[in-house]
């Protein structure tokens, strides 16, 4: 399979300051019912949406369903997007992660976590799915994650990728809830300082 490079447009940090969000125009057009604009938006966002959903949900076919829901939701709400509240990529990433979490949590309550415990035995999708080459982004994120203390990083990853609430993370790490809350907050502040995120 060919290697797809994510353009500047799929980067999340472009909404900062005065730089116009390159996806803003496409989303506005999509909000007026323009299918072609939405198709372009899909091309820009799909690698990220599918990637983050799969990372959380793990099961490929369920991940596809969730990713599809995310795009239909983006379409429905396109006209309601407010640029003051973050870039289009940030909005889409928020929606994708929330939907993935909702899926995992409803699964969990339905199947009492058995499925997840099993899926945890499956190798990380790093090994089985071809990644989009986003060398720069990935290197920056990896570097930023490496700056965290091991405990901050563990707590953040269990929450964001593992789909656990901070209370569950506290149980998993066998530390007090307050400690996890602090670790998560300090870790996010550090990540923000490394990666940017100030608006």
């Amino acid at each position: 399979m060919g290697v797809l490079r994510l353009g500047r447009a799929a980067r999340a940090d472009v909404a900062e300051g005065d730089v116009p969000d390159p996806l803003g125009g496409l989303l506005r057009q999509a909000g007026r019912g323009d299918h072609e604009a939405f198709a372009q938006l899909y091309d820009e966002l799909a690698p990220m949406v599918v990637g983050v959903v799969l990372r959380v949900v793990r099961d490929p076919s369920q991940s596809e369903e969730v990713a599809q829901e995310v795009f239909v939701e983006l379409w429905r709400l396109a006209a309601r997007y407010d640029g003051m509240k973050g870039s289009v990529a940030s909005w889409a990433a928020t929606m994708a992660h929330r939907r993935a979490i909702d899926r995992v949590r409803s699964e969990q309550s339905a199947r009492n976590r058995v499925a997840r415990e099993v899926s945890n035995l499956v190798p990380d999708h790093d090994d089985v799915v071809e990644r989009v080459e986003t060398t720069l982004d990935q290197a920056r994120v990896r570097r930023a994650l490496d700056m965290l203390s091991p405990l901050q990083r563990e707590a953040l990853e269990l929450a964001y990728f593992g789909g656990h609430t901070y209370r569950e993370v506290a149980v998993l790490l066998d530390v007090a809830e307050g400690t996890v809350k602090t670790r998560i907050r300090d870790g996010m502040i550090r990540l923000r300082d490394e990666l940017g995120g100030a608006q």
Partner: peptide
């Protein structure tokens, strides 16, 4: 706002190639 912008970069770093059939299903549903 800031944490979401930060996390969207973490999300972007997870990017993978979507399955070739997904786009068609999305476009049909919208």
């Amino acid at each position: 706002l800031a944490f979401r912008a930060t996390l969207s970069q973490v999300a972007a770093a997870q990017s993978i190639l979507p399955s070739p059939t997904l786009k068609g299903r999305v476009m049909a549903e919208i």
